[in-house]
Design a binder for these strands. Structure first.
Lengths: 212, 212
DNA sequence: GTTTAATTGTACGGAACCGTTCATTTTGTC
DNA sequence: GACAAAATGAACGGTTCCGTACAATTAAAC
């Protein structure tokens, strides 16, 4: 303990690990994992794509599962970032619901998101904690935000929502409708169908929860 | 063409293939495929579980993908069988909707069904036709049946549903709510939450589509 | 410049598994 | 019983991939 610095600034001797390489590895790994799945992903291919030696991957992550966990964490972090939900639109409550529904559907319909959900669901079987991490980073977070919006609208007298958590689920579920399922199973969903589902969801939602 | 029978009754010489063994193979394959996935399923393990030689599998199916397709077909056939939707309950329209919602949720919440959906979704990426076969055997079939029920109730003056296809999606989606997602990602769903979702779905549905 | 640690390339051991071949045995039909 | 096709067991070639080992190189910190 001669001239050790405090625990905060751990002095590292020798060559420090290259954080850029680490990022490239996780990025390449995420692409492969969510493209072809965990089992079909080869570490050697990830190393080649990231422009890195295979040994570096094992030095930094130690294990294939650990690399997978890091890739999931990266993607969840991206999701959290994209969930600002800023710029609440003005206009009637009908218009605001419509805009929110469209934004959510657009966000969830992106092919990368569909693919990500497929893989996470599949790997959740072997690693339950991964599924929960995904729910916490995405769906549950979104539910809380939208639920708060409904509570606010209720307090303003624009809606009459007794159970905002339940109502939030109902609205989102109706917006997704069967389109969610169809996309997950490879059938394209037309923009017309989506618009129809969202408009229908707003109609039903307002019929049930309108303030007047 | 000496004493050939008609094309109908193809005479088979020698030992006929054992249909019981074929069924055992597909059954074992389905279990493994939907338990651990396509890539992680070993033909040799399937053969051992089915009590059959590996060569027999290759003789009967020729390929791992073909065996997978047969397993999917078997499971889809089971789904079609379980979709009789008989015994339409009597009582108020509210009661009938509640019973239907509960039955659907129970059917879809079975662990085997969750697992089956996970795997089909994952393999749909490589084989899009499989996803469509699943949709046709299950969700689309159910949607048509429930849609017809809504049309009937409308004709009887019990409901006022302008677009039964849309309304069917809305009701089912609300019944599933977020429970569907949570189950797919490994989080258990309590019976209380399910009952609450179904009751809420009936409330909202009737608020929007009641006849009076 | 020295030290310390990260990175690289190559190679290896070991395992798993697909799909095939072949000789042998079983089993249903004629 | 004779025939023909199916089933079996074992072995093989080929491939892929994980994870490790080792010697050599590079790069930051002192």
């Amino acid at each position: 303990m001669s001239s050790k610095s405090s625990q905060e600034t751990q002095k590292k001797l020798g060559r420090p690990s290259d954080k850029a390489k680490r990022a490239a590895i996780v990025e390449a790994a995420a692409h492969s994992f969510f493209d072809v799945g965990f089992a079909a992903t080869s570490i050697e291919q990830v190393a080649a794509t990231a422009g890195v030696s295979k040994v570096t991957i094992y030095n930094q992550f130690g294990d294939k599962r650990a690399l997978f966990a890091a890739a999931v964490e990266l993607e969840c972090e991206k999701m959290r970032g994209h969930f600002t939900l800023e710029a609440m639109p003005a206009g009637s409550i009908r218009n605001r619901l419509t805009v929110i529904g469209e934004a959510m559907f657009l966000f969830l319909s992106r092919p990368e998101m569909i693919q990500f959900e497929r893989r996470i669901a599949a790997e959740t079987v072997a690693e339950p904690v991964i599924g929960e991490a995904f729910l916490e980073a995405g769906p549950w977070r979104m539910k809380r935000a939208f639920s708060a919006f409904l509570d606010h609208a209720s307090a303003c007298g624009e809606l009459d929502v007794p159970d905002s958590a339940l109502a939030a689920e109902q609205f989102v579920s109706m917006c997704k409708g069967m389109g969610d399922l169809e996309q997950r199973f490879g059938v394209p969903v037309s923009a017309q169908d989506s618009a129809k589902r969202i408009a229908g969801a707003v109609d039903v939602f307002l019929a049930a929860y309108s303030a007047n």
